[in-house]
Amino acid sequence: MSSFAGESQRFTKQMISKRNSPERIADQGFFWLTLVMAASVALLLIWIGLQIFTAAFPAISTYGLGFLTSTTWNPVSNVYGLLPQIYGTLVSALVALLIAVPLGVGVAVFLSEDFIPYTLRDAISMGIELIAAIPSVVLGLWGIFVFVPFMRPFYTFLNSTLGWIPLFAGSPRGFSLLTLSLVLSVMIMPIIISISRGTLNQLPPELRLGAMALGATRWETILRVLIPAGLSGIIGSVMLALGRAMGETMVAAMLVGNANRLSASLLDPGSTIASLIASQFAEAGRVQVQVLMYAGLVLMFMTLVINIVAEMIIKKFQNIE
């Protein structure tokens, strides 16, 4: 019995002295491993940025900032301007947001309230997440063969009644900024719904109780307490959606009409930076590739600005909370 006790004591001692080395080495090793991984991601980003910048540099020095305000795109005479694509990128993304934000936030509110039983709510949000899983090329195909023919009469109607507004002028042909915006709004709505719903669900129930106990109706509670309280999450989802809409390539190239001229009208064919690059890179000459790199740099810069603004807005609202 006593020998057993002695043995167990020695065993304990060994445990204490031994614990140090292998575990601590593993611990520190893990630190360095994650550090290297994090650093390599940052380096990769910088490296890609530099590569694109170097590749674009001849175009940048030739065309300068005038590239951003000029509207002609003529590879034959090497005259390039990106304004129609910048306009198309921004306008199609904004119109998509205009549709997707109210709908998305509305659906998120609906799903976070107890209007319908919980299981049904979960089934609906599962369906919404499946929309997000549709490959964009499939959405593009659907757009070309189903959506555009379906929408054509509506576009014609819009053009004939509201044609005096520059946004709806021109001759509607189906493939247009508006078509792109509508399909983009379908693509980005799941992002807005799932993030906003998550935010609303995570609000403390005491907030709702507090508002109701003051005599607020359900809608007063939602509009004046719950949505403001969840605003950082909702704005975050919108910014994420905006970034997605601006960078979306396949759907844009398939549906926007790829017209390299500036027209204010949503019903006219247009183009976006992403669709321009996607539709031209294959047969581009040396100079044109440099110009496309420049265009890509502009797009990267635009999405970067949006992400920074999003971070700032989210931080600002989080401070209020």
Partner: peptide, 9 residues
């Protein structure tokens, strides 16, 4: 209520 629940305002 038992737990103070001011609005985030």
């Amino acid at each position: 209520f038992q737990k103070p629940n001011p609005f985030p305002k």
